[in-house]
Amino acid sequence: MPVRRGHVAPQNTFLDTIIRKFEGQSRKFIIANARVENCAVIYCNDGFCELCGYSRAEVMQRPCTCDFLHGPRTQRRAAAQIAQALLGAEERKVEIAFYRKDGSCFLCLVDVVPVKNEDGAVIMFILNFEVVMEKDMVGSPAHDTNHRGPPTSWLAPGRAKTFRLKLPALLALTARESSVRSGGAGGAGAPGAVVVDVDLTPAAPSSESLALDEVTAMDNHVAGLGPAEERRALVGPGSPPRSAPGQLPSPRAHSLNPDASGSSCSLARTRSRESCASVRRASSADDIEAMRAGVLPPPPRHASTGAMHPLRSGLLNSTSDSDLVRYRTISKIPQITLNFVDLKGDPFLASPTSDREIIAPKIKERTHNVTEKVTQVLSLGADVLPEYKLQAPRIHRWTILHYSPFKAVWDWLILLLVIYTAVFTPYSAAFLLKETEEGPPATECGYACQPLAVVDLIVDIMFIVDILINFRTTYVNANEEVVSHPGRIAVHYFKGWFLIDMVAAIPFDLLI
């Protein structure tokens, strides 16, 4: 008679799926529990143990900040960024110097990925580790590398530091407007667009060049630039800015003055950032001319202004700041037409079709709590990747769950009947059967004279019903998954307890 339990259901295979997918890609990662103190490590794979030199037993239950890997060259700011990422709910990448158990130093890129439950609360953290440099290539500990984003994938490793954006290309926007319009339909740009040429040739750093990471940081200074100062900065030398009595002219307006920039070969870094931020506020060169004239017309309804409409929906549905990093990277690809469009465009503009998908598509409701890094690593669709929660398995109709209350009560009843059979069957065979043979035949009273025979008949009927119930009862397979398919249940029961239950259900007393 089957006594099969499996009270692990309803099970959740999400954690096993993450481990299996990460292991298949030869990654070095740990999984931490966000619900406990210090976000203790609950799993670390073999790749991480080989990377740091510690065994799994030495890593388990330690804080996922990996303070046991810190050393003299470990930056405090990087460690603080990892700790801050564990307090938030967004994906974050941090470069930090770690030390192995043998004392060797290596520069590592740590990717902190939160995993949320159905309520939107962070319950786990996945920390992925990628070695960037070994100890002989690690720089000085005073050099802070965590304020910069990861290198873009479309640049060669040897040319990542030679990417320079020439400031004269930004200063000569109005001069290039006529050349853009003359391109017409034969050019790649839309009317009114501004073409910015980027020099990728390796050259020595000069005062006129600005690194790509500095251009990325310009967006942080746009908020500090007032509207009046932006307007004066875009007017140009024809209309000098008016300053109040006793007030000095704005240095932001002076930063885009061609006369002032041409007199000296070098520009201050602050002026460069502010000038680029001011130019980015204009949607095209037409807006710059309109600002000089004193009238700013409404933005025209053409394809170039609607190019950012799908980007707005993608940004609203993005799951991490990696989408913004990807957008900034692609927006700086050289030799393309940049349409400086305000994100607050007309909502009635139709979304044009684009061959290049900048932001990841909208994630469906079932995966809105899973970050983009987890979705990318697992390579699963929205119909396959579940949320991290207890999910009731989908069972067929008329199927009994093996952990249901009805099955528990039924098993206790069958257990009592088995005990009765084990006690009274030998007793009936030894004593009652002998008395029946010696006594007179009682054929007239039937079952009324033999109450134990009636009980034995009921017990046999219950055993037959138990066999039928076992054909529709779920079970737990070797992978700790609840199986509810009727065919698989029948095959599993035939290979197991079916023969024993059938022999126990045969009414031998009635056959004798």
Results as ranks from 00 to 15, higher is better:
Arg159Ala: 14
Ser354Gln: 14
Ala228Asp: 06
Gln335Pro: 14
Ala204Leu: 15
Pro10Lys: 09
Pro352Trp: 11
Glu357Ile: 07
Ala85Ile: 01
Asp323Cys: 05
Ile31Gln: 01
Arg5Glu: 14
Ala223Met: 06
Ala9Pro: 06
Ala268Ile: 14
Ser140Gly: 08
Asp136Arg: 12
Arg326His: 07
Phe29Thr: 01
Leu296Phe: 11
Gly381Trp: 11
Ser55Ala: 06
Ala83Val: 07
Tyr99Leu: 01
Pro72Gln: 05
His221Arg: 12
Gly184Ala: 15
Pro299Cys: 12
Ser278Thr: 07
Arg76Ser: 09
Arg62Lys: 10
Val112Glu: 01
Ser243His: 15
Thr337Pro: 05
Ser104Thr: 14
Arg77Pro: 15
Ala223Asp: 09
Leu170Val: 05
Ile96Thr: 04
Arg326Ser: 12
Cys265Asp: 15
Asp342Thr: 03
Gly103Ser: 15
Leu87Tyr: 14
Ala97Ile: 06
Ser313Trp: 01
Lys161Ala: 06
His70Ser: 05
Gly294Met: 04
Ile123Leu: 13
Ile123Asn: 15
Asp46Ile: 03
Pro141Thr: 06
Thr13Cys: 13
Gly345Glu: 06
Glu58Pro: 01
Thr216Asp: 06
Val122Thr: 12
Ser283Gln: 11
Arg73His: 05
Glu372Ser: 15
Pro240Trp: 15
Ala57Val: 15
Gly139Gln: 15
Asp355Val: 14
Arg252Glu: 15
Ile126Thr: 09
Ala32Val: 03
His7Pro: 14
Glu372Lys: 10
Pro298Asn: 01
Ser140Tyr: 15
Ser272Gly: 05
Arg269Val: 07
Leu167Phe: 15
Gln61Arg: 13
Asp355Ala: 14
Arg242Ala: 10
Ser304Ala: 12
Thr162Trp: 14
Ala97Ser: 11
Ile19Cys: 04
Asn38Arg: 14
Phe98Val: 01
Asp355Gln: 05
Ser322His: 13
Leu338Gln: 12
Leu51Ser: 01
Leu15His: 04
Asp111Met: 05
Trp154Arg: 05
Asn12Tyr: 15
Ile330Tyr: 14
Glu50Trp: 01
Phe29Asp: 01
Cys276Asn: 14
Ala160His: 05
Phe14Val: 12
Ser140Ile: 11
Thr270Phe: 14
Thr371Asn: 03
Glu177Ser: 14
Ala223Ser: 07
Gly262Val: 14
Ser140Pro: 15
Ala193Glu: 10
Val194Cys: 07
Asn257Pro: 07
Ala97Val: 14
Glu37Gln: 07
Gly224Glu: 15
Pro63Tyr: 01
Asp111Phe: 05
Phe340Cys: 07
Ala228Thr: 13
Pro240Gly: 09
Phe29Gln: 01
Gly103Thr: 10
Thr13Gln: 12
Val132Gly: 15
Leu225Trp: 15
Ser250Phe: 15
Leu51Met: 14
Thr174Gly: 15
Val94Met: 01
Gly120Ala: 12
Pro141Glu: 10
Val384His: 04
Val138Trp: 05
Val222Glu: 13
Ser140Phe: 13
Asp213Met: 12
Ala169His: 15
Met60Gln: 03
Asp197Glu: 01
Ser178Thr: 10
Val132Tyr: 06
Phe348Thr: 15
Ile330Cys: 14
Arg77Glu: 13
Ser278Asp: 05
Ile288Trp: 08
Ala97His: 15
Ala193Gly: 05
Val198Phe: 06
Asn117Ser: 07
Asn128Asp: 14
Pro300Met: 14
Phe22Asp: 05
Leu109Cys: 05
Leu86His: 01
Ala40Met: 15
Pro202Tyr: 01
Ala282Phe: 08
Glu23Val: 03
Glu23Cys: 06
Pro2Leu: 06
Pro241Cys: 15
Ile18His: 03
Lys332Glu: 14
Ala350Cys: 08
Asn220Leu: 06
Pro258Gln: 06
Gly6Ile: 07
Asp136Thr: 11
Gly187Ile: 13
Arg280Pro: 09
Val94Gln: 06
Cys44Met: 01
Gly184Gln: 15
Glu95Gln: 13
Gln84Tyr: 03
Thr375Tyr: 08
Glu274Arg: 07
Pro10Arg: 11
Thr353Pro: 15
Glu130Lys: 05
Val215Leu: 08
Lys362Leu: 11
Ser331Gln: 07
Val8Ala: 14
Ala228Gly: 07
